[in-house]
């Protein structure tokens, strides 16, 4: 009786637990990330280096339209540094004469997109649209591990694979042919903080930054989560004790 009950509930819960894994087809090598686990936080230095890579490399093709410059304070940049970063960008506006003009960016501006619209992006990119990177970590099966693997997954195509025009071989990309050429190389950027820019380091840093922009609320969320879970655990114990007391005089 008891085992049956447990089995039925376990089957249901097991199904719920398995559900997300059903659709997943590839397993990506797991990396240790600073933002994992119930107490995980973003490695600020890594995320700042990652922003440098985004700024110098990725943002030439990829937009990040959900993100504001002011969000950069979340990876530990000072308000003044954020202001300076924003001011280094010219954003389109309407001038006093009513004509399109440009002004210096403000922290309250969205990240400037490399192309004015998707059509322009495709036209400049050989027909391929570089996906927006605001939530790319959440929008790909495998998340951070996938992005990291992909960035390191460029290889010479096997002899029997016929590559499409302008396509690049990547062992982690679905179908293995990706329009994006290997974006990162050894020493692709010169880190402001003097960290050696190995390929792995670059991939790790930019992935950390991408994880931050996808989940800027994560640290607050987990902090609150720990408190809520502790509170509810306490409530469960107290309520159960009260229940035991109230039921103590019921004879079965």
């Amino acid at each position: 009786m008891q085992t049956l009950r447990i089995a039925a509930v376990a089957a249901m819960l097991g199904f719920v637990a398995l559900a997300p894994a059903l659709a997943q087809e590839m397993e990506y090598p797991h990396q240790n990330w600073s933002f994992e686990g119930p107490f995980g936080t973003y490695d600020r230095a890594s995320a700042q280096r990652g922003f440098q890579i985004y700024k110098e490399v990725c943002s030439n093709c990829h937009s990040m339209k959900q993100v504001y410059y002011r969000n950069l304070e979340g990876i530990g940049l000072s308000p003044d540094a954020v202001k300076a970063i924003a001011a280094s960008v010219d954003v389109p506006t309407i001038g006093d004469d009513g004509q399109p003009a440009e002004r210096k960016g403000l922290p309250s501006d969205h990240f400037k997109a490399p192309y004015p619209n998707d059509k322009a992006a495709r036209a400049a990119q050989n027909g391929a649209l570089p996906p927006d990177q605001s939530v790319i970590i959440k929008a790909r099966e495998g998340g951070a591990d996938y992005i990291y693997s992909l960035l390191l997954g460029y290889e010479a195509p096997p002899a029997d694979v016929k590559m499409g025009d302008g396509m690049n071989y990547n062992k982690w990309f679905t179908g293995h042919q990706i329009a994006m050429a290997a974006p990162l190389t050894e020493g692709r950027v010169e880190y402001a903080d003097g960290t050696k820019a190995t390929l792995e380091q670059e991939a790790r840093d930019v992935t950390t930054f991408l994880a931050f922009v996808a989940n800027p609320e994560m640290e607050e969320r987990k902090r609150m989560g720990v408190r809520v879970v502790l509170f509810l655990a306490f409530m469960t114990c107290v309520t159960y004790a009260v229940k035991r007391q109230i039921w103590s005089d019921v004879h079965h």
Binding site: F231, F234, M235, V238, T239, A241, V242, Q245, I246
Partner: peptide
Amino acid sequence: RDFLKLVAGFS
């Protein structure tokens, strides 16, 4: 029963 109930209710 008062004390436990009080704690539970307050929480």
